[in-house]
Computed example of a mutant assay.
Amino acid sequence: MAPSDEVTVRKLVWAGAAVLVWAAVAYLVWRAMGVLAPVLVPVAVAVLIAAALRPAVRGLVRRRWPRVLAAALMVVGPLTVLGVLLVITVDALVRGGGELAEALRDGVGTVRDWLVRGPLGLSEPQVGGAVDNLVAFVGDQGERIVGGATATAAAVGGFLAGLVLAVFVLFFLLYEGERIWTWLLAPLSASVRTRFDQAGREAFSSLGAYSRATVAVAVVDAVVIGVGLAIIGVPMVIPLASLVFLAAFVPYVGAFVAGFVAVLVGLVSGGPVTALLVLGLSVLVQTLEGEVLQPFLLGRMVRLHPLLVVVSIAVGVVLAGIVGALFAVPVVLVARAVLRQLPGTSNTQTG
C-alpha cells in the first residue's frame, strides 16, 4: 500500500472514531437531559421569560427603581396576570361544562335521527348499537382517568415544584443576571470567553425578541378569535380564547390545534353552519398570523425562515413532545448564535 493510501485510511479511521465519540457524547447528553428534565425545563422557561422582561427591568432601573424591586415587580406582575387568566378560564369551564354537555347530548340525538331518517336510512338497532359502543368506550376512558388519579396528583405536584423553581430562577436572572453570566464565563480563556460572551448576548437578545413577538401574536390571536366566537354565538368563549392564547406559543402548529378544538365546540353547540363559521374564523386568524403577524413580528425580530420554524417544531415534537415543540425555535436561535462565533464564520447579522 502506498504511503498516501495509508495516510488516507488513517484519516478515515480517525474521522470515523471522532464521529462515534461525538455520537456517544450526544447520546449521553440527551439521556442526562431526559433525567434532568424536571429541572432543565423550568430553568429554560425562566430564561425565556427573563429575556423578554429584561428591557422592562432596565427601564425601571433607569427611572431610579432599586433593581431588587424592579426584578420583583417583573416576577409578580406576569404571575398575577397568569393566575387571573387561569381562574377566569377554570371558572368558565365549570359554569359552561353543563351547557356544553347538554349541547353534546342534543348533537348526538340530532345525528342519530339523521342517520335513521336521512338519506343513509340506517336501522335503529344499528345506530343504537354504535351509540352504545361509543358510550361504553367513553365510560372505559373515564374509569382509566379515575384510576390514574394518583399519577395525576403526582404530576400536579411536579408542576408546582417546577413552577417554584422557575420563579426562583427568574427572579435572580432579572436581579443579577450580568453577575451570573460573568461568573459562568470566568473559567474560560480570554479569547474563548469573548466568543462565548458574544454568542450568549446575541442568543439572549434573540430569545427576548422571540418571546415578546410571540406574546404579541398570542394576544392578537386570542382577541380576534374571542370576539369572533362571541359574535357567532359559540359557548365557552373565554376558555377557547385562552386556549388560542396558549397555543400561539407554538408557532403555526398551535393555531391549527386550537382552531380544530373551536370548530369541534361550534359543531356540537350550534351544528354544521356554526362549525363552518368557526372554521372560517379560524382560517382568518391563521392567515392573519401566518401572513401578517409572523412575518412582521417574528420574521423581522428573529429573522428565521418559516420553513425552518416548521421543521424545527416538527423535530422538537418527535424528540420531546409538547416540550420539544415549545423550545424548538429557542434552541435554533441559540444554536445560530453559537455557530456565528465559530472560527471561520461571520458574526454579522444577516437577513
Rank of each mutant, 00 (worst) to 15 (best):
L120H: 12
E289H: 07
G233I: 11
A258W: 00
R64C: 05
G129H: 02
P66W: 00
V331D: 01
A258F: 02
Y252K: 01
L60S: 07
G147K: 06
S4H: 03
V43W: 03
V169W: 02
L163W: 09
F137D: 11
A2W: 00
W181R: 14
A71W: 05
A149R: 11
P295S: 12
R31I: 07
G147H: 08
L82H: 03
L326T: 01
A190C: 04
W181Q: 14
L174N: 07
P330Y: 02
S4W: 04
V220P: 00
S4A: 15
Q198F: 09
I238K: 04
G121Q: 07
V227D: 11
A209N: 10
R193N: 08
A52F: 10
V244K: 02
W14T: 00
L267A: 15
G266W: 11
G344M: 06
R10G: 03
A130W: 12
P272E: 15
R300F: 04
V192R: 13
A209W: 06
V13E: 07
V268H: 03
V131L: 11
G97S: 13
R64T: 08
L165T: 13
V224T: 02
A72S: 03
F204M: 06
L73H: 07
L207D: 02
V21A: 12
Q294W: 06
V19L: 00
V273D: 15
A241T: 08
L79M: 10
A136K: 11
A255D: 04
